[in-house]
């Protein structure tokens, strides 16, 4: 009976092997579907939706020195933010800059709520995810009108095609030219056809994490052995804007569920 403690360990191992076996499947779309069904069966809710609900609670919670919550300005459960994510990243007058979802939330929290040193942690990402879900079902509709938006878009496009680093990679190589094919078992998204911006922030079942688009961009740079730009860096905003613009017309469905 003393060996009883081994049981959960073994069950974990068995689960891992099942996961591994599933990961070997040829058809990636099928794999995503199966993972989704499995999680729904086990938990009754997808992890991404749990994060989004957590984000809703945090959205309505007072944080920082100003005694405000996000909902103090944006309405209970963010009812004034409906559809806002469909137009992001965009130029903000109060910032006099173009901001993506992450950067805008950080600015709001620091400037208007008095939160010091906003960290890009799970709580932060949950709020971002919740804000994105307020635009679910709407088509992506990013406009490039302001000169700063134009400048940022051009920077993003330049980065998109730039062959950089020790791997000589660019975003375009994987996500235009070879989009739809695999690196190891990871299927590469095609930015235009797949309207990538519409399903981020997303829950990644391969590493059980919630990622915003900034995390995805940083992860990509890391994989091509380029030091990733820090969170809220202009490069994240520029590439997010480029991809969001290329995703125009796609229906927003967040949090995404990806490998």
């Amino acid at each position: 009976m003393r060996r009883l403690w081994l049981l959960p360990l073994l069950m974990g191992a068995a689960g891992g092997v099942v996961f591994y076996a599933l990961a070997q499947q040829e058809n990636p779309a099928e794999e995503v579907k199966k993972q989704k069904e499995m999680l729904l069966k086990e938990m009754g809710i997808l992890p991404g939706d749990v994060y989004a609900e957590q984000g809703r609670d945090l959205f309505n919670k007072v944080m920082g020195t100003a005694g405000k919550s996000c909902s103090s300005c944006h309405g209970q459960d963010g009812r004034y933010l409906k559809g806002s994510y469909a137009h992001m990243p965009r130029y903000y007058k109060d910032m006099d800059a173009v901001a993506d979802l992450d950067t805008r939330i950080k600015y709001c929290m620091e400037k208007y709520m008095g939160v010091k040193e906003v960290k890009h942690d799970t709580n932060f990402k949950s709020i971002a995810t919740f804000v994105a879900t307020l635009s679910n079902g709407m088509p992506m509709d990013v406009k490039i009108e302001n000169p700063k938006e134009k400048e940022m878009y051009e920077k993003g496009k330049q980065l998109w095609y730039a062959r950089v680093g020790k791997m000589d990679f660019s975003c375009a190589i994987c996500h235009d030219t070879f989009g739809g094919q695999r690196i190891r078992l990871q299927t590469l998204a095609r930015v235009k056809q797949d309207k990538v911006a519409t399903h981020w922030p997303a829950y990644r079942f391969s590493n059980d994490q919630l990622w915003t688009m900034e995390d995805r961009i940083r992860g990509c740079y890391n994989q091509i052995r380029v030091t990733p730009p820090p969170h809220f860096h202009w490069a994240n905003i520029a590439l997010s804007l480029y991809m969001a613009y290329e995703s125009n017309g796609g229906i927003i469905e967040t949090p995404g569920f990806v490998r």
Partner: peptide
């Protein structure tokens, strides 16, 4: 990041 995205002439030609 800024240092890492500096390109050599060939990388520039391919971008």
């Amino acid at each position: 990041f800024e240092e890492d995205i500096k390109q050599d002439p060939a990388q520039k030609m391919c971008s």
